[in-house]
Amino acid sequence: MSQGILRYLGSTMGRKYIMAISGLVWTLFVLTHMLGNLLIFASADAYNFYAYKLTSNPLIYVAEAALVVFIGMHAATGIGLRMRNSRTKPNLYAVTPKSAKGASVTSKSMIWSGTITLVFLILHLITFKFGAYYETTVDGILMRDIHKLVVECFSQTGYVVWYGVCLVLVGMHLYHGVASSFQTLGINHPKFNNAIKGFGWAYSIVVALGFLAVPFYVFFVKG
């Protein structure tokens, strides 16, 4: 990589490309994660077998490493830009406009919805990936009973509330992020702008509701 490219990527515009691309990688990841979670509606065995298939594939380490690199880039670049932007706009106005000359709640709060999402993600990994290890046998194969742990966690009111709040924030982050990354990557056309905005809206709702379906199902139906 020539030095030239690094100067481009380090500019305020280049760093936005980094935000958009790393954000889109995680946007796709959360969708697949959410769809996998829905297997809990099929059966406990299906859920465990899916998790087993996923974690026993050696490619998982490559995927995990990529996800860690991308979220690291996304967080570090996002925090760096936010710090720069606080410096370049040290004072806001005495009156906050309610018109379009102001800014939407989701776009203003990206740094906060993002930070809480990151904290949630770390705790989430501790709770599930590195959490209690139960065992079960499906089709004669000994594997981790992740289903049991999920049911345990989502039977606790406090955990369901915390999970619910975090997922709403994830949805808000996606709502601004998905449509915004199209713009950052230069995809903007009067013909498609409404569709892009609608896509971002639908995507964030579907992902958030998909994730939220599991704790509600466990808490109210299974619990």
Partner: peptide, 17 residues
Amino acid sequence: VWQMDEEDFGSCTNMGS
């Protein structure tokens, strides 16, 4: 863009204001 960064303008977060 180099000049814009040098003048200490912020980055775009697609708020549309």
